[in-house]
Design a protein around this nucleic acid. Sequence first.
DNA 1: GAATAACTGTGTCTGGCAGACACTATTTAT
DNA 2: ATAAATAGTGTCTGCCAGACACAGTTATTC
Lengths: 234, 234
Amino acid sequence: MGEETNEAVRLLWGPPAKPSRGPKPALSLARIAAAGVEIADTEGLGAVSMQKVAGLLDFTKMSLYRYVPGKAELVALMVEAAVGGPPPVVDGLGWREQLTAWAKQLARSFTEHPWLLDATVGPRVMGPKELGWLERVVAALDGHGLTGPERMDAAVLLAGHVRGIAEQARAARPDGSPETELLAVLGPLVHQHADRFPALAAAMASQDGRDQALDFGLERILDGLETLITRRTG
Amino acid sequence: MGEETNEAVRLLWGPPAKPSRGPKPALSLARIAAAGVEIADTEGLGAVSMQKVAGLLDFTKMSLYRYVPGKAELVALMVEAAVGGPPPVVDGLGWREQLTAWAKQLARSFTEHPWLLDATVGPRVMGPKELGWLERVVAALDGHGLTGPERMDAAVLLAGHVRGIAEQARAARPDGSPETELLAVLGPLVHQHADRFPALAAAMASQDGRDQALDFGLERILDGLETLITRRTG
DNA sequence: GAATAACTGTGTCTGGCAGACACTATTTAT
DNA sequence: ATAAATAGTGTCTGCCAGACACAGTTATTC
């Protein structure tokens, strides 16, 4: 990842452009990223190819390589463009309320751009906007007796939970129309093999389908953090 | 996903084989999956192609399609083979200790097969072994006042956390040799833009690098569950 | 025992993909 | 005016998943 990493860092963090000698660029990183996002939003990340992105912009595939070193970097730009920034800080809110709002907003990003789940797997460079999300959590937990690494760990914990829920929600969602929701497959399977999964079968018996997995986990995490904070600050 | 889903279900849950008319199959699902796992373990999931898997078994690519409908199903079999089963239940352990052991063991699976992170993104059918992991969590939480859906949510919460940590650990790991660990890139970036990320910069200043993110999140989650359980059972 | 039907493994082909490279046209610096 | 750097293009290679037709093999059926 050596060189590619630096290229990605340059694109995500570097200066916006440099005036130079040859012809003026007709495209821009922003337009290219937006085209990629449009395709991913409608057809999924798998449908994003240099060809398709270029076609949407009425350019040839190879012209994109004048702006972006490769597809990985294009996806990085798409992520940064789609994830947006964290919600504005509302003064007077406690850390719990701030983190709750943060989680709901992040979940909304994943719902609007489900392909973000696919695009953010594996080692990659985070852009400024993405880092902004982390910043918010760490800032919200400032001054409550947690160490620096602990605040970072809390941010990762929260982000991981939202991500996990988003993945589950996507699986349960009917992507096209005649698609089998994954849970509709899982349920019968569990009951069919109830001998092997007695606890699951029992747990799934009460079909209230409340769909509050995000809130449940969030409350547990915040309760856990509160326990720690109380212990630390006396 | 309509038809593919059913095919995947048949492969993962169906009967092992059916005696039939033609020549005896020289291969087996198990051998094919094992070959795929071997490639993924050494070269990553991206290096797994029908060609490569077949080559490792000294067969042609197309012969694999006699066993597996497509690559997606092959990956599903690989996941089921690599994830293994949950750790054995140790009697006399409380739910907290059981879930702790569960999380550590699951984290080990992700460490041994980092490509599991890539292979378990997106809607997919879970196999019996994978479902076994969920079963354990739900079973461990039985009889503590939580509803069925709540126990399921707790399982998803725990699994999501372990997954998130595994992803972070992989990013921090030097995959090849001269690879830049992602955190080694992130640190300088944050400090370089400390004005935009003051809380992050401060949090990262204390460089103790204890690497206990798994434990931290786990304790918070378990504390949060304990709070709920105490509230429920009085 | 012979015919038949079902199955296994193979070879060939298509369409799509990322990306390397050489080329032309354009614009600015000297 | 000329040279250098750059933007967009067209062509080419190699890899990929998968469709399909084929030849060889084996159990079933007559």
